[in-house]
Amino acid sequence: MSPYLKVGRLLPGGDDLIHIVKDGTGEIGTVTKADMILTCGGLEPFPVLPSGEMDLSTPGKAVKFVIGEVLFLAIRSQVVGMVNEWPRKKAALWGVVE
Rank of each mutant, 00 (worst) to 15 (best):
G52C: 08
N84Y: 05
L71I: 11
T39M: 10
T32V: 05
E85Q: 12
V70Q: 13
F65C: 09
M54G: 01
G60N: 08
P59K: 08
P3F: 09
W94F: 14
T25M: 07
L5H: 12
D55A: 14
G26E: 02
K33C: 02
T58D: 14
D16A: 12
L71C: 02
T39G: 03
C40A: 14
I18G: 09
V97K: 14
H19Y: 12
N84P: 00
I75H: 05
T32W: 01
L73Q: 06
L93M: 08
K89F: 09
R88V: 10
M36N: 08
V96Q: 11
L10K: 06
I67W: 07
P87W: 05
T25I: 13
L56K: 05
L5I: 13
K33G: 02
D55L: 14
V63W: 00
L71F: 07
L49S: 12
G95M: 03
G13S: 14
T25R: 09
K90D: 09
G68W: 03
V97F: 01
A34Y: 11
P12K: 11
T25W: 02
V80G: 04
P47Y: 04
L93I: 02
A34N: 13
K61W: 02
G14T: 12
A34S: 15
G95E: 08
V79P: 03
T32A: 05
E98F: 05
P50Q: 07
L11H: 07
W86F: 14
A34F: 10
A74Y: 01
P3Q: 12
P50N: 04
L38C: 12
G41I: 01
V70N: 10
A91D: 01
G29T: 04
E69G: 08
G26N: 06
V21Y: 06
L10R: 03
D55E: 14
P3L: 15
L17N: 11
P87M: 04
I75Y: 06
L56F: 00
F46D: 00
S57C: 05
L93Q: 02
E69V: 04
S77Q: 12
L5W: 04
H19F: 12
L11V: 14
F65G: 07
D23V: 01
K22T: 02
D23K: 11
L73Y: 10
E69D: 14
G60R: 11
I67T: 10
E27W: 01
R9A: 10
P3M: 13
P45K: 02
L10T: 03
A92S: 15
A62C: 11
V83M: 14
W86E: 07
I28L: 04
M54A: 07
I20A: 04
F72H: 13
M82V: 10
G13W: 09
V70P: 02
G26W: 01
E53I: 15
N84G: 05
T39W: 01
M82F: 06
I67K: 11
K33A: 11
S57I: 09
K61V: 06
L10E: 03
G24W: 02
F46P: 00
Q78K: 14
V70M: 10
E98W: 04
V48D: 04
M1Y: 08
D15E: 13
A34E: 15
H19C: 01
D23G: 11
N84I: 00
V97C: 05
